[in-house]
Design a protein around this nucleic acid. Structure first.
Lengths: 133, 133
DNA sequence: TATAGGGCTTCCAGTCACTGGAAGCTCAAG
DNA sequence: CTTGAGCTTCCAGTGACTGGAAGCCCTATA
């Protein structure tokens, strides 16, 4: 398989696949003409990476997950540990975004959004906390 | 004021303040010795930037908000538009993270996390969807 | 057989918002 | 006069790609 077909079947763009090779996540062989020659196992790995990335795992996490996947002697506890850490990072991020959302939505509601310059959003950003709440 | 004092009072590290000058967000004067000389207005601007960044606004948004803040002829509608767009981006991000969270937490729960290699997390990532929902 | 196109290759640069580090100047205290 | 803190600039690295340029390879059609 050439890179185009693999890209299509894995859903990962060619540029990204070349990047994954650069950083050692996949190691396709080469044809006589210099083209990358992917086997089914490469495709499988790339699809694995695509799903892991879609769950928000970092590249380093993906590398470790892939290693565990290929390690028949793994303990599922190792996989679970990675996933739990990531899950708690996601929870942190959600909480942080919800804090922002909370503040910002109050400000947006309080702003009339008309032609006049008065604006509680700017007032808040400027440090004048007398407004809102 | 030198950069250290401004950093302390605004809560923004010196490195970041220099970076903000590089990209034109603040324009402190210079003392005879080459040190940056910040006025109160510069400090005020930096604190504004700190709060806007804490709400997750991009640097470009911050630049626009700062311009509007200094523009007496602004319409609050302009500010509100920026804030609403950002708010909806935040909402999108939260939704995306919650999707990830949902999937991931089910997988984590299903994984026994023991010494054995069987792992529904890896099974899911490898594309075997027979497991879990 | 010439050529046109699409796909493939590499390499370099840019993204976003900083952050770390090195080399070197300035200033105040002891 | 030395020490050390604080300031300066410049360069490089982060994460995970993404865009673009220059050029080779392959196939189909005129």
């Amino acid at each position: 398989m050439n890179i185009g077909e693999v890209a299509e079947r894995s859903g990962i763009p060619p540029k990204t696949i070349r990047y994954y090779e650069d950083i050692g996540l996949v190691r396709p062989q080469r044809s006589g003409n210099g083209y990358r020659a992917f086997r089914e196992t490469d495709l499988h790995k790339l699809a694995f990476l695509g799903r892991a990335r879609a769950l928000g795992f970092s590249i380093e996490d993906c590398r470790n997950l892939l290693n565990l996947y290929e390690d028949e002697t793994r303990a599922s506890a190792q996989v679970k540990a990675i996933a739990e850490e990531h899950l708690s990072a996601i929870d942190d991020k959600i909480a942080q975004l919800q804090d922002m959302r909370e503040t910002l939505s109050h400000l947006v509601e309080a702003c009339r959004g008309d032609h006049r310059p008065d604006c509680p959003i700017l007032k808040d950003l400027s440090g004048d906390l007398k407004n809102i709440r």
